[in-house]
Design a protein around this nucleic acid. Structure first.
Length: 357
DNA sequence: TGCACTGGGTCC
DNA sequence: GGACCCAGTGCA
């Protein structure tokens, strides 16, 4: 059994580092694709909540396995999105939506095979924030402890689906089915960002982030793509990563955002952030406009401000500057092995510090 | 010419 | 072996 409170607050064992890590245990590690059934029960869900696992589910289902998702749905609340349900259906999941005034609020995840079950009971929804920056408690029960509980995924699902609830089954074949009216659109222009998401990511830059920025035009050091490499916990800082790669054989998931390079006075309306789902799980922010600009050096702080769903601003705060000194303490997470740090600050606090330093 | 891809490296 | 780090290739 394992318990965790994320992000990075408390773990009962080194092998449980947050909800996402527990889900990797029950759906990826120690599992054979095609063996048994995977389960998702979550009141809220969005595309980035599942982006780590769509390829895993697809392989599992293509090899004869099953995947069942029971999600919240509503016409008046933003519970689950069109995008996550579409993607789950595309990879072959069975999706049920519970439309209820007193909403489905449980979050349970796991699997069952002929001889084994695993279950994660969590406060974390199947959403980007639930998987990364929200404070969520999760408990994983597996092996003989599941039998001690006398827990049965089969019974749980059967009992849920036999309740006298409004249960809808959306399908890709019938997009006019009322089930689709219970879902909200993550991509639409009417999307308004919640206050909690109006934050600035502070990220120290390492050699790999700045080598092409510092390169002289025409040299090999400038070849390839200019990226900032982000933490894998960045699911909730970007819009739905629904753009699949067109060429290549390893699945990637991207979103296009509008990036205002404040230092350069350039706005890039096709700034791409990519999650390398089948390569190395890299989270990369394309920052090509910075190439050759010399505007950032290794050790500098990048401030990426999310001002609306698709609009971002990028500033480089040079190491040693007043703003750097004031803001570095907010980059509380140490990641990688080159001393990279990142963290978040509210846009209001960020703006105040910028103007006063 | 620039960036979507590739596929390793390296440290813990 | 996970999670950033790195240095490109080759295609549009």
């Amino acid at each position: 059994m394992q318990f965790t409170l994320h992000p990075n607050v408390y773990n009962t064992s080194p092998s449980s580092k947050g909800l996402l890590h527990m889900l990797e245990q029950v759906w990826v590690r120690d599992r054979e694709p095609g063996d048994g059934t995977n389960y998702i029960i979550s009141g809220f869900s969005n595309y980035n909540g599942g982006v780590r696992f769509y390829e895993i589910f697809k392989q599992h289902i293509d090899n004869g396995g099953q995947c069942i998702a029971i999600l919240g749905g509503s016409t008046s609340q933003r519970l689950s999105s069109i995008q996550v349900v579409e993607q789950l259906l595309e990879v072959g999941c069975k999706v049920y939506l519970i439309n209820r005034k007193r909403i489905l609020h449980a979050k349970c995840y796991g699997f069952s095979t002929n001889n084994e079950q695993g279950v994660v009971i969590s406060s974390g929804n199947f959403t980007g924030p639930g998987m990364s920056q929200n404070i969520e408690a999760s408990m994983l029960v597996k092996g003989s402890h599941v039998q001690e509980l006398n827990f049965s995924w089969n019974d749980l699902i059967n009992n849920m689906l036999s309740q006298n609830w409004s249960i809808y089954e959306p399908t890709l074949a019938d997009r006019t089915h009322p089930a689709w009216q219970l879902l909200y659109d993550e991509i639409g222009t009417s999307v308004r960002l919640e206050d909690a998401q109006e934050v600035t990511m502070l990220l120290t830059l390492s050699h790999a982030d700045t080598a092409r920025i510092q390169a002289a035009p025409g040299t090999t050091a400038g070849k390839g793509t200019q990226y900032f490499w982000l933490s894998k916990d960045s699911y909730d800082f970007f819009p739905a990563l629904t753009i699949r790669n067109e060429r290549g054989h390893k699945a990637t998931y991207s979103a296009l955002i509008n990036m205002n390079y404040v230092d350069l006075g350039i706005v890039d309306n096709e700034c791409r952030v990519t999650f390398e789902a089948e390569n190395n799980l890299d989270f990369r922010l394309g920052t090509g406009k910075l190439r050759y600009s010399r505007i950032a050096r290794s050790g500098d702080l990048a401030a990426i401000t999310r001002i609306s769903e698709f609009d971002y601003e990028l500033r480089v705060l040079p190491i040693g500057s007043n703003a750097y000194t004031e803001l570095l303490p907010y980059a509380v997470n140490f990641i990688g092995h080159q001393g990279k740090r990142y963290g978040y600050i509210s846009n209001e606090d960020f703006s105040n510090i910028l103007t006063n330093s």
